[in-house]
């Protein structure tokens, strides 16, 4: 089964929870870090990397001697990635979605497609956890195509845990798509609640069953609990606010490996997820 760990707000503890789940499971686990803009799983798990492969996106290459400046490609491009100047068609790669329409539509066959590297996918292992993560090249705007490549590594034979990026737009949808269950990590504060509601909306649109993990329980107020109660959203686990957990995290140490009883709690959490999920 595939379990996504997501949240609207950043910094609520997604990676901490995803890593804790992976380290607590009895079975074989694959942990996939889909936060390709700022991947952090490898900082906590320090996997030995077995494989690194570049990821490319396809972008148009305009053969100027064939181009008659008809402007059809410019009109059809929905992303304004092509611009017709008096002498030639200009291309802005950062706006291109690699749909291929310009190449299909060019009546002069003056557009071919070429590969442009946008990042890398790395595979490795830490203890008995298979780790996969993507790293977007700095300056590259489009995360979704790299996330798609990272997700091609999903091994359905294993329990798959997906660490999603923060937010609620396309990179999040790309990451959680196809999951059997989503754990939404929040903190019990007004910001945490506000962004949790947004994340719930996204997951409900995608029809993915969900539950909440309240991290840093004890800070803030009780409104997250009220909201979950009203909406019938199960609170699957509470992790209390603790300076010890924060301090371990700051040094890149997963707290479940140092604090007693927590592996058991995360194993129970996995059990609960299995019971909640139809798959």
């Amino acid at each position: 089964m595939i379990i996504s760990v997501a949240s609207g707000k950043g910094g609520t503890g997604k990676t901490t929870v995803a890593v804790a789940l992976a380290l607590s499971a009895d079975e074989d686990v694959q942990l996939i870090d889909c936060d390709v803009e700022e991947p952090n799983v490898h900082i906590l798990l320090r996997p030995k990397i077995d494989e690194e492969r570049p990821v490319y996106s396809l972008v148009p290459a305009i053969l100027e001697d064939r181009c008659n400046l008809c402007g059809k490609c410019v009109d059809l491009c929905q992303y304004n990635a092509l611009f017709l100047s008096p002498e030639k068609v200009l291309f802005y790669p950062e706006l291109c979605h690699s749909c291929g329409l310009c190449a299909i539509a060019c009546p002069e066959e003056a557009i071919t497609e070429e590969k442009r590297q946008i990042g890398v996918v790395r595979r490795g292992s830490a203890q008995k956890v298979d780790v996969v993560y993507g790293e977007l090249n700095v300056g590259e705007p489009m995360a979704a195509p790299l996330i798609r490549e990272v997700k091609k590594e999903v091994d359905r034979e294993k329990t798959v845990i997906v660490d999603a990026p923060p937010g609620a737009s396309c990179p999040v949808v790309e990451s959680v798509y196809g999951s059997d269950f989503a754990l939404l990590v929040t903190e019990p504060t007004p910001f945490g609640l506000h962004d949790l509601k947004i994340a719930v909306e996204v997951l409900r649109t995608l029809k993915i069953p969900l539950g909440v993990v309240v991290n840093r329980a004890g800070i803030g107020d009780g409104k997250v609990y009220e909201y979950c109660g009203e909406e019938g959203i199960p609170i699957m686990l509470e992790i209390p606010f603790s300076k010890e957990i924060a301090e371990l995290y700051s040094r890149g140490v997963p707290f479940v490996t140092r604090m007693e009883g927590w592996r058991e709690k995360f194993r129970n959490l996995l059990e609960k997820i299995r019971r909640c999920s139809p798959a």
Binding site: T15, N40, I43, V138, G139, Y249
Partner: peptide, 20 residues
């Protein structure tokens, strides 16, 4: 924030600023 993840992400954010 002074965490290993925070530092890693700051370095990438600074590279991005430098790029632009």
């Amino acid at each position: 924030e002074p965490t290993l993840s925070g530092i890693h992400d700051m370095e990438r954010a600074l590279k991005m600023l430098n790029h632009f």
